[in-house]
Every structure is written in structure tokens, then in C-alpha cells.
């Protein structure tokens, strides 16, 4: 353990990013929950290979499919936001660039998540 860490800092256990192990744990939670979700999502995608517009809509509007894909998008948006944040923090050392990329990361994930979720809700509600 580095001598530059004060006993108070060690007791707080928040580390240099000041957020402790919250992201580490969240990444594990979303990877475990992601296992059944990705399996289900692959089934849905494979069953829609070559599907025409009408049959794709009929599949996607079923409540079980809509719930599965909504959970999948939500789960992996959280997971990929943390993953990309770690990549940015590992390789980008300029503070301004790092801050801008972290904001862009949040924006990208939020945009993808909301677009996917809205599309699913729209299909489920009105076809």
C-alpha cells in the first residue's frame, strides 16, 4: 500500500476516482444478468433472420419479447458505459480530452438506449 495514502483515505476506500468499487460491482451485476439476456436476445435475432417487415413486427410486439429486449438494452447500456469509461480512463491522460470523451460516452449510451427503448415501446403499443 502506498505511503502517500492517508489512513482516512484508506478508511473511506474511495480510491483515486472517488467512487470506490461501485462501478466494479455494477459491471459484475450487469455481466451476470447479461448472460440470460444475451441468450434470449440471440434467440430473437436468429428467429428473425430473413423475416419480412410484418413478421418482424409480430415478433417484436409480443410482450415477452419486448420485455426481454428492453431489459437487454438497459442492462448492456449500463455495462458498456462502464466498460468504455475504463478504456477512456486507461488511455486518455489529457484531462480535457478525458472529460469530453466521458461526457460523449454517456451521451452515446443514453442516445442508443433511449432510441432502442422508444422503438420497442412504439412497436409494442401501436405495431
Amino acid at each position: 500500500m502506498s505511503i502517500s495514502r492517508t489512513p482516512l483515505a484508506r478508511a473511506r476506500g474511495l480510491g483515486s476516482a472517488k467512487s470506490g468499487t461501485a462501478d466494479f460491482w455494477r459491471q459484475r451485476v450487469t455481466s451476470v444478468l447479461g448472460l440470460p439476456l444475451i441468450a434470449g436476445a440471440i434467440l430473437v435475432i436468429v428467429s428473425n433472420i430473413g423475416a419480412d417487415y410484418r413478421s418482424a413486427i409480430e415478433c417484436l410486439r409480443r410482450p415477452a419479447v419486448a420485455i426481454l429486449l428492453l431489459l437487454t438494452i438497459l442492462n448492456f447500456c449500463v455495462h458498456m458505459r462502464i466498460g468504455m469509461q475504463i478504456i477512456i480512463e486507461d488511455y486518455i491522460h489529457n484531462e480535457t480530452a478525458k472529460a469530453l470523451l466521458l461526457i460523449a460516452n454517456t451521451g452515446f449510451v443514453a442516445a442508443a438506449g433511449v432510441a432502442g427503448a422508444l422503438a420497442l415501446v412504439k412497436i409494442a403499443a401501436v405495431g
Binding site: L60, I73, I123
Partner: peptide, 15 residues
């Protein structure tokens, strides 16, 4: 991460 765009494109296109 980038591939999520493809999945979302499929859903948005269907919608």
C-alpha cells in the same frame, strides 16, 4: 459498444 448501433438500427427501422 459500436455494434449496439446496429441492434438499435434494426429496432428503430422496424418501428
Amino acid at each position: 459498444y459500436l455494434g449496439m448501433v446496429l441492434f438499435v438500427w434494426w429496432l428503430v427501422a422496424a418501428a
